[in-house]
């Protein structure tokens, strides 16, 4: 465990908490892509199947449970409790355009052709594109609530910190997880234009609105 990974996990948890607080306090999921949240719940479900079989550490187990809870509670709030505020018209990204290539690739490029390994690979590939429906929705509506941009900032930051963690682990323990690293780079690249808007606009107190 290193500082980049801890900061990454904290940033990831913070993002999920910010989103839950936003939905709960505003009693609305306006501007939030329910499809992205479904994909994140799918990512954690397919990645954390070893929760009961492969004990790594208390930290690992607790965080996996917390992440799963946050993901499913968020999906419940969007499609259940506050479904009347859900903007399904603008949440129109076709999930099959993501799921089909991701499933295909996880069968083609994986470390071993076993069910748990293919599901883990699927979760890694899926996570790298899971934010696209949300970014697509923002580009369609042309703006995002400030708290939503904070959610996206910490969500993008988490995987960027994981890239630093992989560089650190490569140099200190010669650890190299190619599938996770390549997917993590792709995932972080998707956030670049958002990061630019976040830093040049939101941090200057302006509202995030796309030209």
């Amino acid at each position: 465990m290193n500082v980049f990974r801890i900061l990454g996990d904290v940033s990831h948890l913070l993002a999920m908490v910010i989103l839950l607080v936003k939905i709960w306090r505003s009693k609305s999921c306006a501007g939030i892509s329910g499809k992205s949240q479904i994909l994140f719940a799918l990512v954690f479900t397919s990645r954390y199947l070893d929760l009961l079989t492969n004990f790594i550490s208390i930290y690992n187990t607790v965080m996996k449970v917390v992440f799963l809870l946050c993901a499913y509670v968020t999906v419940y709030l969007i499609y259940g409790k506050f479904r009347k505020t859900f903007d399904s018209e603008n949440d129109s990204f076709r999930l099959e355009f993501l799921l089909v290539p991701v499933i295909g690739l996880s069968f083609l490029e994986n470390y071993s052709f076993t069910p748990t390994e293919i599901l883990w690979t699927f979760s890694i590939y899926l996570e790298s594109v899971a934010i696209l429906p949300q970014l697509f929705m923002i580009s369609k509506t042309g703006e995002a609530e400030t708290i939503t941009t904070h959610y996206l900032f910490f969500l993008g930051l988490y995987r960027a910190l994981y890239l630093a963690n992989w560089i650190w682990r490569y140099h200190t323990e010669n650890f190299y997880d190619q599938i996770a690293v390549v997917s993590g780079v792709v995932q972080t690249i998707f956030y670049c234009d958002f990061f630019y808007l976040y830093i040049t606009k939101v941090l200057k107190g302006k509202k995030l609105s796309l030209p």
């Binding site: 790594i56 690992n60 996996k64 190299y176 190619q178």
Partner: peptide, 10 residues
């Protein structure tokens, strides 16, 4: 390419 089985990251 063989990689660590039992992934230890979240």
């Amino acid at each position: 390419d063989q990689e660590p089985q039992g992934h230890d990251e979240l």
